[in-house]
Design a binder for these strands. Structure first.
Length: 464
RNA sequence: CGACCGGUCGUCUAGUGGACUAGGACACCGGCCUUUCAAGCCGGGAAUCGCGGGUUCGAAUCCCGCCCGGGCUACCA
């Protein structure tokens, strides 16, 4: 969906560093990147750190790290500068202060000296009377003279606010229902609905692509932009929310699975993650399920975006991730597996790669499968019959010159044949002896991955 | 409370008045394959299209009402 008309497309994401990097941020970033790419536009990262209570610098780094992991890079941002900086709201306070002063000077905003307690009482009162709460405008008409602590409120002029949403079409809100909202907090910091539209205007943002929770905020922000005489963004796109299994918005507090880094730790591939995220709330209109980023750039359009929230389905993510793992070349899989298997050398991992490939949904599962290579399992209790068959196998194996899957396989099959039983009768006790588990890669791989003397020692121990 | 956004299999979704006996994917169940577990292949169950009214020869699709869910209504973003 290229927009050819007029100025260079400029989009942004504006996360607030108040906790771990959130899945929703990844999702929003993806859509911004897709739109910027297809329009050869600029993608900007801005840090919305106006909540001094909860902001922490380390959270900002977490956001960078998570986005980089997913393969996203921005053209402008706090860490790399750009022509519209600074890119941290805490460093742009003068801008907001000036704008607030201008609005007050023009009687489009006013100081409000009400205390949080007083406002709370107003709100409770409204609630008790079952009417929607709007600020009483007490400080507009009759401000107290004996107070010094104040916030700044925007004087809502009323009337309809219309804007274009690329997902939902033309939107109309009635601002008569709004009530005067706070634009500057008593600590001097701007609120989100003030700082965000100001920065979007100052940074020449042409399209605001963000989560659906901001849909009701948009008219507030437009009111501010209009009052200041700034240009509005050309269009908005409010993307469906990512929902928890219970249907509520995935939140940092209630849902630890919203933490992006968790997925890296468990061994999800970034490209699988991006693929799944793209499919959550959007579909190509075909039955295709796998897409690279480049393919998404080519296929994605806002008119095929879902209007309702989508539940995050770990099972489907697992499936897509498995698909990606299976499609990896052995050396690529090996490289990605390294951090998950610190006890193994690269050559061993690469030898195991073909057997691992069809058995992993996430890279982290490799550990359970290969643990026996560095952790000595306890000797199993084998029945006399099992012991007999393992003994026969041990003799055959000990004569083997070449300790590789194929010859191991061949020699074991001979033992199986002479036993007159199915392969499992021989293989399972060997598997138990060597790995201590009932589940492992195919027995020839399981043995070949281990040095021959170690494997033979474990077998010998089991048949003593 | 209110204006706002939604409501098709458990989940993600296709569907824009007749091709819908509502399609696909994940999950689930069964079979095949088989050296365990996977992968692969084949098959199966699973959606009164939130409910009730209209409009129409005909509605998942259009209109109205209702119900349910969500988001917002913060000196959070």
């Amino acid at each position: 969906m290229a927009v050819s008309d007029s100025p260079q497309v400029r989009v942004r994401i504006a996360p607030s560093p108040t906790g771990f990097a959130h899945l929703g941020t990844a999702s929003t970033t993806l859509y911004n990147v897709l739109f910027a790419r297809v329009n050869s536009g600029t993608f900007t990262l801005r840090i919305d750190d106006t909540d001094i209570e909860r902001n922490r610098e380390e959270y900002e780094r977490l956001i960078y790290e998570a986005l980089h992991w997913l393969g996203f890079e921005w053209d402008e941002g706090p860490d790399k500068g750009g022509p519209y900086g600074p890119y941290r709201q805490s460093e742009r306070l003068d801008l907001y202060r000036e704008a607030a002063a201008k609005l007050i000077g023009e009687s489009k905003a006013y100081r409000c000296y009400c205390t949080p307690e007083e406002l709370d009482a107003e709100r409770k009162q409204a609630q008790a009377e079952h009417r929607p709460y709007v600020y009483s405008r007490r400080c507009l008409t009759n401000p107290p003279t004996d107070r010094t602590v104040f916030t700044v409120r925007f004087h809502v002029p009323g009337g309809e606010v219309k804007f274009t949403d690329m997902v939902r079409g033309e939107m109309t809100f009635d601002s008569d229902l709004f009530g005067d909202f706070i634009i500057v907090k008593s600590d001097g910091y701007p609120t989100y609905n003030f700082a965000s539209p100001l920065d979007d205007a100052a940074m020449q943002i042409t399209h605001v692509i963000r989560g659906e929770e901001h849909l009701p905020n948009t008219p507030y922000q437009l009111l501010v932009v209009d009052a200041l005489g700034y240009a509005r963004p050309q269009a908005f796109a409010h993307m469906p929310l990512i929902l928890a299994p219970d249907g509520s918005k995935l939140s940092k507090r209630k849902h630890p699975e919203a933490n992006l880094m968790l997925y890296r730790e468990q061994g999800y591939l970034p490209e699988a993650m991006v693929n799944y995220l793209a499919l959550l709330g959007w579909n190509p209109g075909t039955e295709r399920e796998t897409f690279t980023l480049d393919e998404l750039v080519a296929e994605f359009t806002f008119d095929r975006v879902q209007h309702g929230g989508a539940r995050f389905d770990r099972k489907k993510l697992d499936w897509i991730n498995g698909e990606y793992i299976r499609s990896l070349e052995d050396d690529d899989l090996t490289a990605r597996l390294k951090t998950f298997l610190p006890d193994l050398d690269e050559a061993t991992i690469e030898r195991a790669a073909p057997a691992l490939k069809t058995r992993l949904r996430v890279l982290g599962e490799a550990k359970a499968l290969l643990e026996y290579l560095w952790a000595d399992p306890p000797a199993p209790e084998l029945s006399p019959e099992d012991r007999q068959r393992v003994k026969a196998a041990a003799v055959a194996l000990s004569l083997l010159q070449e300790w590789e899957p194929v010859p191991i396989h061949d020699v074991l099959m001979q033992v199986v044949e002479s036993s007159g039983l199915g392969p499992n009768a021989t293989f399972m006790p060997i598997r138990l002896a060597v790995t201590g588990k009932k589940i492992s890669p195919p027995i020839d791989y399981t043995l070949a991955l281990l040095p021959k003397d170690v494997a033979m020692a474990r077998i010998a121990r089991a048949i003593q």
